[in-house]
Simulated scan of single mutants.
Amino acid sequence: MSTTVFCRKYQQELPALPFPPLPGKQGQEIQATVSKQAWEEWQSLQTRLINEKHLNMLEPEARAYLMDQMQRFLNNEATDQAEGYVPPTQA
């Protein structure tokens, strides 16, 4: 695998993920089309959504919701946001 990929979120060459983040074909596709930066940003949003919306990851509906939000995020579509989240200020 190359050390960079053309990231579908940022539409530019960026550092690649070192390994597929999910099992199977979907993980391979993400590794080939999503940068490390975009994936890390998704993981941060995913954590906020799980915590703020009190998602139970044992429920298939919660997992399906997150997969939908992931695709939206990586395709630059509107995603749900965690209510009340205030990003840290940079000093």
Rank of each mutant, 00 (worst) to 15 (best):
Y65T: 09
P18S: 13
L74Y: 03
T33A: 12
Q81I: 13
E61R: 14
Y85D: 01
T79R: 12
Q11K: 11
Q37D: 11
E59W: 11
A62Q: 07
T4A: 04
G84H: 02
M70H: 07
F19S: 12
Q11L: 09
Q46P: 04
L49R: 01
L14Q: 14
P88W: 00
M70F: 09
S2Y: 11
T4R: 06
A62H: 14
C7F: 04
L58I: 08
A16N: 00
P20C: 03
M70D: 01
E83Q: 12
V34N: 02
L55S: 05
E41K: 14
W39S: 00
F19K: 11
Y65D: 07
M1N: 08
Y10Q: 05
G84D: 02
F73C: 02
R48L: 15
S2K: 11
Y10K: 02
F19C: 08
P60H: 11
D68I: 11
E13F: 10
T79S: 09
Q31V: 00
D80R: 05
P15D: 03
P23H: 09
W42R: 06
N75I: 06
L17E: 03
Q90Y: 13
A32L: 13
I50E: 06
S35R: 00
V5K: 00
K9Y: 00
L14H: 02
R63Y: 08
Q37W: 06
Q71Y: 12
F6G: 04
K36C: 07
A38F: 03
N76Y: 10
I50S: 09
M1A: 04
R48M: 08
E52F: 11
Q11S: 09
A16L: 00
K53N: 07
N75D: 15
E40N: 12
A62K: 05
E40W: 04
T4L: 06
A16K: 04
M67P: 00
R48S: 05
K53R: 15
E41G: 07
M57V: 09
Q31H: 01
Q26N: 13
R8P: 02
K53P: 00
Q71S: 14
E40P: 01
A32F: 05
L74W: 05
M70Y: 04
R63S: 10
T3R: 12
G84Y: 00
P88T: 01
A82N: 07
E40Q: 13
C7K: 05
P15Q: 02
L74D: 09
S2L: 07
L49H: 03
T79N: 10
L74T: 08
P21A: 06
T33H: 13
L49W: 04
C7G: 00
Q71V: 14
M67G: 07
N76V: 08
L58E: 15
Y65M: 11
R63W: 04
